[in-house]
């Protein structure tokens, strides 16, 4: 192994890691937001809207992320959707993640005991208030472990963005390997970066979980 090449490629790898983290954070935030909207639409919208949303979920979940990105980035211009690599990548991540997040939220909402919703209805609370004050806080808490889990999966999906030339970590590692033939070193660096990222996310996730479930767990 020859680690000296890191001196030369270190800065670009770090930059790549920065882009990876940025794509992951924004993709996760937008994907979660869209997923939440989808889950609420499924719960409250009239049935035919629900069917449209369900079809969207089936299409996205039923096709590989790589194919979705190709369609978006190379097929998009055919319908006038011209995006740079990073915006295209972010949009791709958002669309790709949203149905999974939506399913997580849906399950989280279902975990809220119906009686607690009824108790709110019984005192005359309006449905939007019930969502905001009861359903969301309780549903999000029970969704949290699955949300963290899927966010971690999403970190690793970001490497696919390299295919559409998003200059994230995988892209930089690919460039370094191609130029130096040091495949092992390059990919070990990649693995290390991802391990650090994933470890950080899961630690933060666990702490948040402990904090917000403090009052929800029955103590005897």
């Amino acid at each position: 192994m020859e680690w000296s090449i890191l001196e030369q490629y270190g800065p670009s790898l770090l930059r790549g890691f920065g882009v990876t983290v940025l794509c992951w954070i924004l993709g996760t935030i937008f994907g979660m937001a869209l997923g939440l909207v989808i889950a609420l639409v499924q719960r409250y919208a009239p049935r035919f809207v629900g069917w449209i949303v369900q079809a969207y979920i089936e299409v996205i979940r039923g096709t590989p992320f790589l194919v979705q990105l190709f369609v978006l980035y190379y097929g998009g211009p055919l319908i006038g959707l011209r995006l740079d690599a990073i915006p295209a990548g972010l949009l791709g991540l958002t669309l790709y993640g949203s149905p999974y997040f939506a399913e997580i939220f849906r399950a989280g909402f279902r975990a809220v005991p119906h009686g607690q919703i009824e108790a709110a209805r019984a005192i005359g609370m309006a449905e939007p208030t019930i969502v905001r004050r009861i359903l969301l806080p309780l549903g999000l808490v029970s969704s949290l472990p699955a949300l963290v889990n899927f966010s971690i999966i999403l970190t690793k999906e970001t490497v696919i963005l390299s295919i559409i030339t998003v200059p994230e970590l995988m892209y930089q590692v690919g460039r370094m390997s191609a130029e130096t033939y040091r495949y092992l070193e390059a990919n070990l660096v990649l693995a290390l970066f991802f391990w650090v990222l994933v470890e950080a996310i899961s630690r933060v996730g666990r702490r948040v979980e402990t904090r917000i479930t403090k009052h929800l767990i029955e103590r005897t």
Binding site: P113, G115, A120, A122, G124, A126, E127, L138, V141, H215
Partner: peptide, 24 residues
């Protein structure tokens, strides 16, 4: 209408078997 029903429910208290307090 939902609004009218909610208005009527305001003056009817209900207590459930499972308490149904909001745990948060």
């Amino acid at each position: 209408s939902g609004r009218k029903l909610r208005e009527m429910r305001r003056s009817i208290g209900m207590v459930f078997q499972q308490f149904n307090l909001w745990p948060h």
